[in-house]
Amino acid sequence: MWKKILITIVLLIGYIYWGTNALEVNYFTLVDEEIPSEFSGMKIAHVSDLHNKDFGSAMIDKVAVEEPDLIAVTGDLIDSNFPDTAIALEAIEGLRAIAPV
């Protein structure tokens, strides 16, 4: 029984670690007749919920490879428990070098 509990705890810790350290890329195509034709083919990168995580250049590199026309940053950029604005500002500066944010 204790082995099952230990395995469950290890898997849970691994899942939590992955969930707070992984960079995930998803692709969506939005089609709607109400979107003006000027937006046809526009690529928008949506960066969300960084929570002061320092991804180094990995996140910037992933966004740059996509060559977006615009970058939208939403969600929690700064974690209220660890409000290190320098990390957040560095991320924004890196993104600004790629496209308008």
Results as ranks from 00 to 15, higher is better:
54 D>M: 08
54 D>R: 06
56 G>E: 03
56 G>I: 09
57 S>G: 04
58 A>F: 11
58 A>D: 15
58 A>R: 15
59 M>T: 05
59 M>G: 08
59 M>R: 07
60 I>F: 07
60 I>T: 12
60 I>V: 15
61 D>C: 11
61 D>I: 05
61 D>R: 13
62 K>V: 09
64 A>E: 14
64 A>H: 08
64 A>K: 15
64 A>L: 12
65 V>G: 04
65 V>L: 14
66 E>F: 06
66 E>M: 13
67 E>S: 15
67 E>T: 11
68 P>M: 04
68 P>F: 03
69 D>V: 05
69 D>S: 08
69 D>K: 01
70 L>K: 10
71 I>L: 04
71 I>H: 05
72 A>K: 11
72 A>M: 15
73 V>P: 03
74 T>W: 04
74 T>E: 09
75 G>E: 10
75 G>L: 09
76 D>E: 13
76 D>S: 14
76 D>Y: 12
76 D>R: 10
77 L>P: 03
77 L>Y: 01
77 L>R: 00
78 I>E: 01
79 D>R: 01
80 S>Q: 11
80 S>V: 13
80 S>P: 05
80 S>G: 12
82 F>R: 14
82 F>D: 10
82 F>L: 09
82 F>C: 10
82 F>Y: 14
84 D>M: 03
85 T>G: 01
85 T>D: 06
85 T>H: 11
85 T>C: 06
85 T>S: 10
86 A>H: 07
87 I>R: 02
87 I>L: 04
88 A>Y: 00
88 A>M: 02
88 A>H: 00
89 L>S: 13
89 L>M: 13
